[in-house]
Design a protein around this nucleic acid. Structure first.
Lengths: 243, 243
DNA sequence: CGCGGATTTGAATAGTATCAATACAGGTGG
DNA sequence: CCACCTGTATTGATACTATTCAAATCCGCG
């Protein structure tokens, strides 16, 4: 696998030069000429919170990189019960590979910026460049690990543990290095509404709200504002996640 | 070695000739010489029900194809609560790719026959043969789809719907073509104990048992024997899966 | 035939959901 | 700048589902 280290970014398209996906995302494995070719077909689009990016059972015609914001992947039962089955952050790759039809709904949880590509553009690149397929496999394996981790939370944890686990996972996602320093304080911006959190944890809004107030009265969190909270001691929160 | 240039079996190792994985599994994408090389390092092993195939946090040194039987992937919380996060059937590929350490426990749910390969043998093949990596990506995407489907079941379905969904999924897994003929009758051999089913659905054994009894008294299923049951009308079962 | 694990059944309890009402926040327009 | 308005969040009272604890029964197997 050849990762082309170009000293000056001369061949890298301007759009891509400051893009996070070029370092940590899939574009990092592309050669400059591939990047140039791909960027000819790419389109950067901004979506406001709540907008649907792709609907369940709709044909898939594009893939995308998440550049900024949070994307919520949901599934719905016929009677309206909804479950969030995944969250995607920059620089994640968005879109079910090699499938003509989406198996879920993708929705902007916050304001979201995407870099969209036509489906065939990506698929042709994959066919030509095994390192891209390798990178996508790594990302898919990672998503599978995360999905299985959530299955434990959904199936076996109490409401209190679910909410704590969610906050903990958001905290270490925002700043992975604080995981080591459990005594540290962190401030997090919730990317989801209470209703979204409930749909992620398999709870009701009311239960999520009650558990958050309990965490507040127990001094595990400080709620500055509906979407903004502080965790004074990460380790104390972790202790409530049920292992 | 004198070889007939048979279109199908020319250079295919004897062990592989009757193997299901060669048709539907990963070995189907390998060239005969690759298959021959790989088979030199492969070992077929049988495990009895209940045996641990790989433990959580253990180093991964081999991958395997499931040849026969059912493998249960589980995760456990510190206090012993357990969640089944996946089931694998022949000819699935077993083992977390590119990871030095297992993130879950794999256990034989029934008597299981594996074809084991040393980790490097597979990884070298992947590096040489992009079509193998493509096949593994397809399988991983499929597992991710299934995991997300279960997340909906775990998070949003009632106990009755969970048990029905489990039976339905087993039925169509055993015989995919009956999915079309909803009026058909099917007989299924449960690959799991009540305790395993409970751990898969995020319920207790007692609840699973009660729901099965209810399905029996409602004439949705006939319980021949603890591990053996008949679904006289698949559509009626499907109606209880909650969509 | 009898033992031990698996399964079913029963009664009481606990945890979440549901229903209903109130409080709050953020944005809009006067 | 404030009052209003709407969607979001919190709080309370009650209902219900699934768990827990306990006991009986069934099943496979030596």
């Amino acid at each position: 696998m050849t990762v082309h280290k170009n000293i000056h970014n001369s061949d890298v398209p301007r759009l891509c030069q400051s893009c996070e996906a070029r370092h940590r995302g899939i574009c990092g494995v592309l050669r400059p000429e591939e990047l140039a070719e791909l960027s000819k077909h790419s389109r950067q689009i901004t979506h406001k919170a709540g907008e649907e990016l792709i609907g369940d059972s709709e044909p898939v015609t594009t893939y995308a990189n998440v550049m900024h914001g949070v994307v919520k992947l949901t599934k719905m039962l016929e009677d309206g019960r909804q479950q969030v089955v995944g969250l995607q952050f920059a620089p994640d790759f968005l879109g079910r590979l090699f499938s003509d039809q989406s198996k879920l709904t993708a929705e902007a949880a916050s304001e979201v910026e995407l870099c969209r590509f036509p489906k065939p553009a990506i698929e042709n690149l994959i066919a030509d460049n095994p390192s891209l397929e390798h990178e996508l496999l790594e990302q898919t394996l990672q998503e599978l690990d995360e999905a299985r981790e959530w299955m434990v939370t959904l199936g076996r944890k109490t409401a209190a543990e679910k909410v704590s686990s969610f906050l903990y996972s958001i905290a270490i996602h925002i700043d992975p290095k604080i995981e080591r320093d459990q005594a540290d304080s962190t401030t997090i911006d919730l990317p989801l509404t209470r209703a979204d959190i409930a749909d992620l944890l398999g709870l009701t809004v009311e239960t999520v709200s009650r558990q958050l107030t309990k965490l507040r009265t127990d001094k595990i969190i400080e709620i500055t504002n509906n979407r903004h909270l502080t965790i004074p001691h990460l380790g104390r929160l972790k202790n409530r996640c049920g292992g």
